[in-house]
Design a protein around this nucleic acid. Structure first.
Lengths: 159, 159
DNA sequence: ACGAATCGTTGGGGGCACTAATGATTGTGA
DNA sequence: TCACAATCATTAGTGCCCCCAACGATTCGT
């Protein structure tokens, strides 16, 4: 029969979905590690970065741009606001909304997070040559684009 | 590492760690979706597949092989045993151990899960040509190998 | 025979993604 | 203009995967 010993690769271990999710686990571990060294996690970075990109905006707008679910936005803003990295103020022109804005401390924190993030990219791709890194990011970008489109799909089926 | 200049997507969206984790999210969604159509999740598949590969084995052995944490093994085995997909019996030769074995129904379930899994691989890689798929899996495999080695710490420095 | 290691189990936690329901507010169109 | 629809913030909860600490019971190594 087979080799019943230890180093045989399980069947699923060559499946693209497995390779992808497991490699992503490592990536996540690396990045989360860097983030945790400044007491942050992914959502914090995503929110701060989106805030810098958009400028002051409502939680809903930030959620749409950053991919953070509206209901997770609340806690994320709370956490950042507690640490004065972000400010939450009512929108006078639309009383349903809060306007979230970046503080100076928030900007500094964002810079730190970007540093940690950049450091880890190299660690993540360590075994690949520069050309291979480009190929990988290209392939992944295309996959991601494809699946994002399949999900966003603003409905237009009529006309 | 170039400057993507105009029409900047959010800065982080071109980072390898982002591409990887987000693509993995799509992969996970696809697969989990297939699994859930037969009332299963990733751990169930991994356990059943490992069980078929190893034959009856202890929970610890199955955990090591499948990458499922020992403490998660308990619940996973419980869930599968409740549905008679797996059997848990004491090991007479080592009373610390349980011997887990696959039932006929478990094998049938495994076949179903493998079907769902295979179906989704194609969906996942849809936008890529056959050559590109090979390149992607090759690159990912190398990344995964690299990071797995850095973590496993195979104990052998000793005699 | 002793301490060290292993096994199963319990009971947590963190992070990310997601759903449902609610009250408040704003918009829209008939 | 007024009823209805849509949006916003919030709360409360789920699911999945990964991980940690501690425990009693058992077996192993020396």
């Amino acid at each position: 029969m087979e080799n019943p010993s230890e180093e045989t690769p399980a069947r699923w271990e060559s499946l693209p979905s497995w390779l992808l999710t497991q490699t992503a686990n490592h990536a996540h571990r690396l990045v989360a590690d860097g983030f945790s060294s400044v007491h942050a996690r992914g959502y914090h970075y995503r929110l701060l970065a989106t805030l810098e990109e958009l400028g002051p905006a409502s939680q809903a707008a930030l959620g749409r741009r950053s991919g953070i679910h509206l209901s997770d936005m609340v806690a994320t803003v709370n956490e950042l606001a507690d640490r004065k990295l972000v400010e939450r103020a009512p929108d006078p022109s639309d009383r349903r909304r809060n306007i979230i804005s970046l503080t100076a401390a928030g900007t500094r924190q964002l810079r730190r997070l970007e540093e940690r993030l950049a450091e880890r990219q190299d660690e993540l791709l360590a075994p690949l040559s520069p050309e291979e890194r480009l190929r990988l990011t290209d392939l992944l970008s295309r996959l991601l684009d494809h699946h994002n489109r399949r999900i966003d799909t603003p409905e237009e089926p009529w006309r």
